[in-house]
Design a protein around this nucleic acid. Structure first.
Lengths: 377, 377
DNA sequence: ACGCGCAGTGAATCATCCC
DNA sequence: CGGGATGATTCACTGCGCG
């Protein structure tokens, strides 16, 4: 199966069924250009780290670069890498949805050039995330620090791309209720997870651990999202996407990697839906207007609200506003005003008296939501 | 004392005695241009990060974050910032000895541009080193990962600059006889170490911890070496250099910072040689998050957890939360909820089935911790 | 002396919906 | 599209006052 040939042969724009959950064979820019624009939720890219670009971009191999002592020649090599980087980042940006995000992983050899180019092209960096390796290769010559991490850049398509997916609450809950940091600790890919060729040697030189991709997808995608990997290699992105109930699109040039990745992905069993449910917070809850508490009888006009320490009292009015002295307005506005603040969450600030104690009106909102669910609202 | 005026007035090349262990006042490029070429062993540079902040940021308690909005961090565009970066990196390279090295610290806002420019100018990157903060500022809005690290680039002047100083053995000896890694753990600069102005507020918005500079100098300088800092600020580089028996050269524009730094450095007493080896970074106790059990395959999504008496059962989800009925959350939150308590240690409350019996998941944490300790989690 | 509670703070690119 | 309304959100540590 060589899906990219299929795409090339088509005169019409390819249908999603022709590229979804598929490895496209060929150059990543050419393949990206055949995909519809704004069709991808998240991109994970593990681009070549050095100037040794196989195929179209023939350059001196590493030993030759080492021998070069002319600054201009070195600069020329960087220029080629920069042009390559610009081309695929541009093509990737076209297929990304407006609220999509991209992850790029690299080392100090290339990540600075990649990051600068991403900024130049309009990507908006959200975080750089460090993958700390529990078992990095030692520095054998003792001339540098042990290179014990790699760097990932997480960016949205646009500066205004505010609607990107970030499963903050789930990450926090999975991390002892402390928000997830920008430094992650994972072992490198070894053992049974590492794909081997017929000689028993590693199939791919830079196979990434599935746990790393799982963290990325659990953080920045929803079930059913489409994750594209333009440097698919041994197919870690596809294997993890399938397991986690996400769709994938892979782009890869070498048939040997494509074959191994297809076999690997075929063997993956997806998790069932219940195990894939992502914890969401208040943000995802349906909005409840304060006035609807009055509409449903949970709150009566004329009732009195207090802050937690009973320093202020507000009177509930039939129109869903509250009044303190001469001022009236929303629970938020008045809450902010009495405290002399710019903003206030009235739902948690104001309380009502119940059996002698004070209860936040947020409790009434919770009850109202239950009623809405039962009504199928 | 204003040494830069002295240098400007001289027709002859300034003598070392006229700039060594001195703060030069003025623009960093102009000051660097007045120094003799190939005279500096190591440069530490903490340039403006070019933060592009949009509006105020408030903590959840509505207090306002004191942002870095100083004039010196304002640049009209990436082009302007790149030109600034190129200019000072070029001037810095001229004064660096052929076997000298340079450290530059930054965040994702600027470090990629700086790193790419360093490569363009012929610097040869030896490592990128991550400063992991033990106590970073949280992400208050829950829209990104907590920005918990900064990045340093360590580079030699030239690709062939093989004779640079790297105290491999000393670092290894100070690190429990394990090679020093590229990720370092230090607290941010607070408390008594943080310089205050007459109002009791922080004098400088970005004062770096002395421990960080000490690690840098212990790694890449010898006693008696000359360390130059073109963005001297509150003078951390000078204070640490003097304490460790190195010479410093500072360049700074603002007189208030120069005065404070001079006073600070005057108060420093140099250590004798024997005391110089004890400066190791603080190690955090290895924290194991529940999600890392899933990451390492010790726990599978979809698995069932029980309390010790099997009164409750919880389902493990791929996002690292657990679910009982309609409720989901962290192992601690859900453990507390089923018992009707305010708090619960999920590690000891929840168990998994193994060979017929129930074992606390804390046992899995113990196993996971073994794999993480080597990396100084 | 010691513990506890409360306030303060650190290089921050920190919203989304509805009309 | 802009503007107004809604209302979601914090970790580690220091220092001070009080009991």
């Amino acid at each position: 199966m060589s899906a990219v040939r299929l795409l090339d042969e088509l005169s019409h724009a390819p249908q999603q069924s022709e590229w979804l959950d598929t490895i496209l064979k060929g150059d990543c820019v050419a393949a990206l250009d055949r995909l519809p624009e704004k069709s991808i939720d998240v991109i994970f890219a593990d681009p070549p780290y050095n100037l040794q670009l196989d195929g179209d971009l023939h350059r001196p191999d590493q030993s030759k670069v080492d021998a070069v002592d002319d600054d201009w020649d070195q600069f020329a090599s960087f220029e080629v890498y920069d042009a390559f980087t610009r081309a695929w980042l541009l093509a990737a940006r076209r297929v990304l949805k407006p609220n999509g995000t991209i992850w790029v992983i690299g080392s100090y050899h290339n990540i600075f050039r990649v990051g600068a180019k991403m900024q130049d092209l309009g990507y908006w960096i959200l975080n750089d995330v460090v993958w700390r390796k529990t078992n990095p290769m030692p520095n054998f010559r003792g001339r540098r620090f042990q290179n014990a991490h790699e760097t990932m850049i997480w960016a949205s398509r646009d500066q205004k791309g505010k609607g990107y997916t970030f499963n903050y609450e789930a990450l926090k809950a999975s991390n002892d209720d402390i928000q997830m940091r920008s430094d992650w600790l994972f072992p490198i890919c070894t053992g049974a997870e590492r794909l081997k060729n017929e000689n028993g040697d590693k199939l791919h030189p830079t196979q990434k651990p599935e746990a790393l991709l799982a963290r990325i997808m659990m953080a920045s995608t929803k079930p059913g999202d489409i994750v594209l990997d333009p440097f698919f290699g041994s197919g870690t992105t596809g294997a993890v996407a399938k397991r986690l109930g996400r769709h994938f699109v892979g782009i890869e040039r070498e048939q040997a990697y494509i074959d191994a990745a297809n076999e690997r992905i075929d063997a993956v069993r997806p998790l069932d839906g219940a195990a894939l449910t992502v914890l969401t917070g208040k943000r995802a809850e349906p909005r409840v207007a304060f006035v609807s508490l009055i509409d449903t009888g949970l709150m009566l006009p004329g009732a009195t609200l207090y802050d937690a320490r009973k320093r202020w009292a507000a009177r509930v009015r039939a129109d869903g506003t509250v009044a303190v002295g001469d001022s009236a307005g929303s629970i938020h506005k008045i809450g902010a005003q009495v405290q002399g603040l710019d903003a206030c969450n009235g739902w948690t600030f104001w309380h009502y008296e119940r059996s002698g104690g004070l209860t936040p009106i947020d409790e009434l909102r919770r009850i109202a939501r239950l009623g809405m669910e039962r009504a199928g609202a």
